[in-house]
Amino acid sequence: MPSQFPTSPIGIVDTIYVKPTVRSPFRPVDAAEAVEGLGFSNDVHQDRASPRQLLLASAAAYTELNLPEHILRENLRITADTSRLHSGQLLRIGESVTLALTFQCEACGRLGPGVAGTAKNRRGMLARVVKGGTVRKHDPIFCVGTSAVTWSDNWQDRVEQVLRSVPDGFVIEFSQIARLAGIQSSYCRAFPALLKRLAPCQAQKAVPANGPGLRWAGGTRAAR
C-alpha cells in the first residue's frame, strides 16, 4: 500500500515541551496533544487567533551556538534546520498532526542576557495547528505542501497585513492587532508612528481601546 507521506522526512521530533500556566516552568513530555486551531493541550500559549501557537526550534542551534538547555523556550525541538523553513509550509508530524508555519520567531531580550545576540535568526519557526492529533518524541516530520496564508518575518509588515484584512466599516483595537500579528502588546506604543506611514484607508481602521467604531476581532464581529 503506498504511503500517504513523502518518502523522506526532513527531520524528527527530538524533544517536546508544554507550559501549563503563565507562572509554571516549561516541562518536557514524551507526547502532547495538538488541538486544531489552538496549539498544544494544557499549554498556556493556546490561542485561536494567534499565529504563535507553537514554536519549533532546531536541535542544531543548541549545539552549534552552545545554548543553555531550553533557553529558546520552544514547544518542539526538531532535527530539521528551522532557519531554512519558510512561512506557508505545511509540516506533517507523525501520522496526523499538521502545522502551518507562520514566521521566524525573533530572538528577543526576554530570553536572557546575551541570548538574543547569539541566537539572532536561529530561535525557531512559529506555527499554527491546522490538524490535531498526538505528537510524540521521535515522530518523523514531512513537508506536505503549502498554505494559502503566508506571513512576513517583519512585524510591521504583519501589522499592515492584519489591517488589510479588516472589513470596510469596521475598526480593530491596537491590542487585537498585536495578537493577530503575533507581537507583544508593548509594540502597541509604536503603532501611532507606524500608522502615519500607511495608507489612510488602512491606518484609520486601527484604534486604541477607547476609540470609536464597530470592532472587528479577526473572523468575528462585535458591535460597540
Rank of each mutant, 00 (worst) to 15 (best):
Y17W: 12
T146H: 11
Q156R: 08
L111Y: 07
L198S: 09
A199Q: 15
L54Q: 02
S87A: 04
R52C: 09
V29I: 08
D43V: 06
V44Y: 13
A116E: 12
K205M: 04
Q89R: 04
Q161M: 13
T15Y: 08
D157R: 03
Q53E: 06
P192D: 08
L198D: 01
T118Y: 02
S175T: 06
R92D: 07
E74A: 08
K131Q: 15
P200F: 05
R128M: 13
S8C: 01
S24I: 02
Q4G: 03
C108W: 10
Q202W: 15
P113V: 08
R136A: 13
K196Q: 15
R110Y: 11
V159I: 14
L55G: 05
G11E: 10
L38H: 12
A107F: 09
V18A: 05
A57C: 07
N66K: 10
R52K: 14
T134C: 03
D168H: 15
K131T: 08
Y187C: 15
H70R: 01
P28W: 00
S175G: 07
I141H: 01
R221S: 02
V144S: 02
F191N: 12
R23D: 15
T118S: 11
H45W: 02
C108Y: 06
A100V: 03
A107N: 11
A206N: 04
A217L: 12
P51M: 10
G169E: 02
V162P: 03
V130Q: 06
P25E: 09
A206H: 04
Q89N: 01
I12M: 05
G11C: 08
P6A: 03
A222L: 08
F174M: 00
F103K: 15
L194T: 10
S83Q: 05
A193G: 13
T15Q: 14
E173F: 00
S41I: 01
Q176P: 00
A223L: 09
L101S: 06
L101H: 02
A127M: 07
L56K: 08
R179L: 15
A61L: 02
R158L: 03
Y17L: 05
A223S: 06
P167E: 05
P140H: 01
M125Q: 13
P68Q: 04
Q104M: 11
I12P: 00
E95G: 08
I71M: 00
L198Y: 05
G11S: 09
N42A: 14
F5W: 09
G88M: 08
I172M: 13
I172K: 02
S83K: 06
N75W: 01
G109A: 13
S8R: 14
D139T: 02
R221Q: 11
R122Q: 14
A127I: 07
F5L: 11
S165R: 14
P192C: 04
K120Q: 12
P208W: 05
A217R: 12
V97W: 11
V130N: 04
P167S: 09
A49Q: 12
Y187I: 10
A80M: 13
V166H: 11
A199T: 12
S185E: 15
T150G: 00
K137E: 06
